[in-house]
Structures are given as C-alpha cells and as structure tokens.
Design a protein around this nucleic acid. Structure first.
Lengths: 333, 333
DNA sequence: CGCAGATGTGGTATCGGTTCCATATTTCAG
DNA sequence: CTGAAATATGGAACCGATACCACATCTGCG
C-alpha cells in the first residue's frame, strides 16, 4: 500500500506538505492541495491509522467493553454507541468480557496499548477496584462505580414505578425476583419497588437468584403454588422469560391469576403470545450520553454531572390490569 | 507510560537487547534477561501494540465483522472465534456491519489501516464483488463467496435432513418459509428440503419472505388457515419464532395439527413452553475452523480445502412426532 | 521603500518499537 | 594456540505518520 512518501514523491511535494494538505493544518496553497488530493486518489493512498496513532498518541477510537454480547440490552447499546461515536468523529472497537474479570482486564490492557482515546465499559462487577486505577478516560454504563463517571438508568425510580403500578392494579401481595444482592442494578430496582410497596402497605417476598441469568424454576414454582401472590416482578429480561415460562407451566393466567412485570424484555413481545408489562430502559439515551460524556472527558471539557441517571419507562401491556387494558376489554377488543 | 527506552536506561542495556529479551529473538544472556524482566516488572512496562504493529507491519490481531450482533448465531460465533484466536496467539477486534455494505467496507478499511493480520467476515451479501478485491487474508463464514475461502454449514444436506424427518413423521404436505432467493443460506436449505420432498413424493409450497428477519404473518396465517398443510419449515430462528407465534394464535397444536421444524432457535427453547424440533448449526466447529483457516492463510500454510462445510444436526423435540416422543407419551410423560 | 506579518514549503526529530549489521567476547575444535 | 563459530550487546535505520522549526516569498501598511 502507498504511504505518505509515495504521495510526496508522485506529487512533487514534501511529506510535510502532504500531511498538512490532508489534515487541513497549517498553510497549503489551493493549487498544491488539488494536486496532492489527486495524487492521493490515483495512488489510492490511505493514511495508516497505526502510524497516526503512534505519532499523535491518540487513535481517534473509543473502545466498548460489554460483559455479555447475547444480552439484547448490550447489543442494542453497542449499536447506539457506534452511531453516536461516528458522529463525534471517533471509530469504535468492541471487546467482550463474558463477565470474566480477567477478560475485562485484558480488554482494557489491549485498548491502552493501541492508544485508544477512551473506553465505555459495562463492567462485569468483579473488577471495580482495578477500574478506578485505569488512567485512560473511562465511562461506566449500566452499573455505576462510585469513583468513575457513569451513565445508568434510574433503577431506584424504576422500581418505585413498578411498585406504584402494582398498587394501582390492586395487587395484594408481590413476589420479587431479584439478582444477587451485590448487583447494584438489581439492588436498586428492588429497593425502589420494596420502598414503594411498604409505602402502599402491600406485603412482598424477595427471591434472590444466585446468578445474573439463571434461576431456580422449582423455587419460583414452589412459591407461586402457595397461591399467596398475585403480583410478580422480574428484575431482568432473561429471568422474566423464565418466570413467564414457569407461570405458563403452572397454568397461571395473566393478569387474572397473577399480574406480572418484567424488565427489558422487548424480545419477549416478539416471541410470545402475551406482551408482558415491562419496566424498560432508554437504551438510546443511555448510549448517547455515555458517548457524549466520554468525548467531553477526552477533550478535557468539564463534566456537568459525574453520574447521569436516565428515567426508565413502564410499558403497560397484557400482564397487568391497567386501565387502558380494561377499556379495551370493555370495548370487546 | 514507560517505553522501551526507559527500560533500557533503567536496566543498563540497550533497546536492542531489551527487545530481544522480550521477544526471545537472538542471543541474550540469562542474567541480562533476568535483570531486564525485573526492570520491566518494576516500571510496569507494556510494549505499545501500535508501535509493534507499525514496525512489524502486523498487529497479531484478527478482525471479526458480523452483519448482526443481536442474532444469537453471531454472538455465539464471536465467542467461539474469540477463544480459538486467543489460543492461536491472536487478539480479536469486532466490528458490526448492521447488514449495511457501506459499514462493511468501512470496517474492512479500518482494519486494513491498523495492520490487522486477517479478517473473518459474515458478509452482508451486498458486497461480494468488493470482498474479492480485498488483499488482507479473508475467511468468509456462514455465507460463502465463490472466490474466497469459506466456512459454512452444509445447508443443502441440512435441508434434506428436514425433508427426511417430515417424511418419517408422515407429513402429507409441507409449507416452507424461506428467505429471499438471493440468500444462499436459505436457498440451499430450501433446495435440500425440496429435493428430498420431491424424492419422497410429498407436496410442498414455498413462501418467500422479502427480508432476512421480518415476515408477513398474515400471509403465513392465510396459508395455514387453508388447512392444507401439516408440516411447516422455517429457514431461520427469527422467522421460526414468528411462525410459532402465528400457529399459537391460530390455535394449531404441535405436533398434532401441524409438525414444525425451525432452524437455529435455541433461545426459543429457553423462552417457550414448547421446544421446537430444529435444524441446528455446529457453531463451535464453524468458528474454530474459520479461525484455523485464517491462521493458516496468514502463516502462508497451504489450505487443505477452500470451502469447508460442517454438518448440521437435527434436534428432535416437541413439535414433530419422532419416535422418542411417542415413547414418552406412551410412558405417560 | 522597508519591514513586519502572513503565506507556502521543506527538513528533520519524534512517536515506540524491531531488526540488520557491526563489534566484542567467549567457546571450542583442530 | 589459533581461528572459526557461537554468544552477547549496542548503534542506527526503519515502519508511516505528525509537527516543530527554518527559510523563502509575498502582502500591505506606515
């Protein structure tokens, strides 16, 4: 492949001038610029990003590290980040930690060694101490880390919304499936929900899964069989899907036998007969503000806020008795 | 961050010696090596991959470009590729084309400019001409391109297996939902299925979706309502999910009213009550041979085969009347 | 007209490594 | 003991860009 010296030679100018012409830095005669640009075209010259990075000590690239690529939340997030970064003039590379701290470290290490300008990371959560020692600009998404700038959903407020909805739907007793307690996302949703249920005087039980994704269906089934609960909350989409399957197996009808709210399960609506009521995250805005924050940090602009929270939304669908649905029923739909 | 000159200075040796010590190239005294390694430790020196890439004109990195990250087939594939590449001593970066030819080109361009050693690509399919002109080592997965080395499932044979299964289950008439005809993957599965159905004397109808993922449910519903079909095949997982939803809506029971085979819908089994019979791809072996092939090409080893085909498997589950299931029924399960 | 500042261009050090070549020392076979 | 080969190390060019500085020319104002 042609390099800048080839362009210099063919165009009859020096490397300096070619560089200036390409990057619009310093003075270049209009005519000279035309000749150089034409030569570049002819030789199909493309500056080496590697050489540029070495020279500038910056690659104009941001890295994205997510813990789980199969999780639709993260794949959607990546799409959004990609677009926004492009608009801001940054390229993007992606790494996947598979929830393993060593892979997370390896990804960060790799990125640092290629002069990446900044990193957006959805941490696996077992590495927070290390993350704070990283000296590349870092923005944390989804699972905030105290010392680092972050973007996340307002999970506490989201939890409260769920509690409010249960209350409005006259639910008498709620079963909450949460994640491990050290999972902040889960913890906050749970706390919001519980606080609201307490405020409304609705009794509840918390079931804590020991894993992010998997869950003991028997355990859940046993609880549901007691017939004590007419409300069920699942703190994430995968758990929500399992819960749904479990309720189907038990023959529980929603919302008549039990009212169900899950989190972030858009794919469920596509796949299933019922579209569950869900607490959803505004992925677009999450991704966009993560990029915006990171770019600000990279460009040494002052941060307005260290921890950004985006509101969550409650999409009321088939598995709760919200008024719109009642209306539909009355209309015979 | 410390650079090689810092290490040289602190250890009292030259850059050359330090480099040789790190890379195990040329002669280095055992004692010298120990001192250098210790200095490296002390300074927390990490060679810049950028500088290495520039100097070596190789980054020891392979790129993976997939068209769709949400598709579980691709996210699984990425996991496998990642592992295998690591084992072979290559780092991995990921780009997503979102099925857009421009993004595909941009990703390739980017990778070339950072001295990537080779690329594994699941092409969007609208760029094949361009792909053949790329002079970085390339291995195509999933959707073979004639002129390029490729790894894919034996979709034709897979289609035949589906046909055979329908025949074995005494299906009388099959409705096949295929993708657009220029989609090779779909085309081959369809051809295999149709060939087998013809051989077995089973009538069929082909429904062609105009998109990879979406599909007209009404169209499908209208066909199913005729009651003409007792067999249904979906060429990919998303279409399969939609079909499943459609059959549920129509109240068709599987396998009694209709026998259903989908492709690659593992996530369905997790989410739904029924685990559909499916034609599945051996993602692990696909990913591994893609990496192995690419590494061979990069290292100038001769290729054994230009186009590798991996067998597909038929996982017989709830939606066809295979013998195991009958047995279970008889056992009262 | 003269000189300061703007404009246009090239030379060269630099980024952080690798690698070829030269040189010095050691080893060992004849 | 000697000289060729093996071992050990350093110097410097190079990878492909950027950017600082020097120099030359041009412009315009007092």
């Amino acid at each position: 492949m042609a390099n800048i010296r080839d362009v210099a030679k063919h165009s009859g100018f020096s490397c300096s001038t070619v560089s200036r012409a390409i990057n619009n830095t310093g003075y270049v005669d209009e005519n000279t610029r035309r000749i150089i640009m034409q030569t570049i075209e002819e030789l199909d010259y493309k500056p080496s990003y590697t050489a540029q990075a070495l020279s500038r000590k910056s690659s104009k690239t941001i890295g994205v590290i997510v813990s789980e690529i199969k999780n639709p939340f993260f794949s959607d997030l990546i799409d959004v980040i990609y677009e926004r970064a492009q608009e801001a003039g940054y390229r993007v590379i992606i790494s996947i930690s598979s929830n393993m701290p060593e892979k997370e470290c390896a990804a960060i290490d790799f990125m640092q060694r290629i002069y990446i300008d900044g990193i957006i990371i959805a941490p696996c959560g077992k590495n927070d101490g290390f993350l704070t020692t990283v000296n590349t600009p870092l923005v944390v998404v989804d699972r905030p880390v105290e010392q680092l700038p972050s973007v996340a959903s307002d999970n506490y407020a989201g939890g409260r919304m769920v509690g409010e909805e249960f209350s409005r739907c006259n639910v008498k007793s709620v079963l909450c499936i949460l994640g491990p307690s050290h999972f902040k996302t889960s913890f906050l949703r749970g706390k919001g929900l519980v606080d609201m249920l307490l405020a409304k005087g609705i009794p509840y039980t918390v079931l804590e899964s020991n894993d992010e994704m998997s869950f003991s269906s028997e355990d859940l089934a046993n609880h549901l069989r007691t017939g004590l609960y007419d409300g069920l909350f699942a703190w994430n989409g995968t758990i929500g899907a399992n819960a749904l399957k479990c309720m189907n197996t038990l023959g529980l009808r929603m919302p008549d036998d039990i009212q169900f709210i899950t989190t972030d399960g858009s794919m469920l609506s596509d796949l299933l007969m019922v579209s569950p009521t869900m607490l959803i995250q505004d992925i677009k805005h999450l991704g966009e503000s993560a990029v915006d924050m990171l770019v600000d940090i990279v460009q040494n602009k002052p941060l307005e806020q260290k921890h950004v929270l985006h509101p969550m939304y409650l999409r009321k669908q088939d598995t709760t008795q919200h008024s719109e649905r009642r209306k539909k029923c009355e209309d015979g739909i």
